[in-house]
Amino acid sequence: MGDAADAVERWEIQLRKGCLELAILASLWSGRLYGLEILRRLADGSDLVVPEGTVYPLLSRLKAEGWVESEWVEAEAGHPRKYYTLTAAGKRHLLGLSRSWARFARSLDGLLAPLRKEPRR
């Protein structure tokens, strides 16, 4: 039983990390955010529990790919914050990812439909 639960958890971890890029880009859809806001958005809007240390290097890569750009903004908190915005290419990329995700989810759902009719054991 423990093994089966472990296996599900491992699978979930793989699934989440595959989706992290999509989730981060999606969190920026409605406007600019800084790193911690992105983390909070992911934690509130989804149950994607993201280790904090993975988000910043990933943002740095998304920037290198040209999908986001960043600017330093002096904040009321008394120190500057680095805000990220989607670029035009980033928006196109995100739309592509989101279409591909929807297609994938639909086809997998179809495949899984018979399982939901099974009585729970």
Partner: peptide, 29 residues
């Protein structure tokens, strides 16, 4: 600078409290 800003924002005291900073750094890895 980005990570310094992150730690300041994640600790309510603005990174003046040792315990809060330690917890924030722990979460960063």
């Amino acid at each position: 600078e980005e990570l310094r800003s992150h730690v300041r924002d994640s600790s309510p005291s603005g990174a003046t409290d040792d315990g809060e900073v330690a917890a924030a750094l722990e979460r960063l890895g």
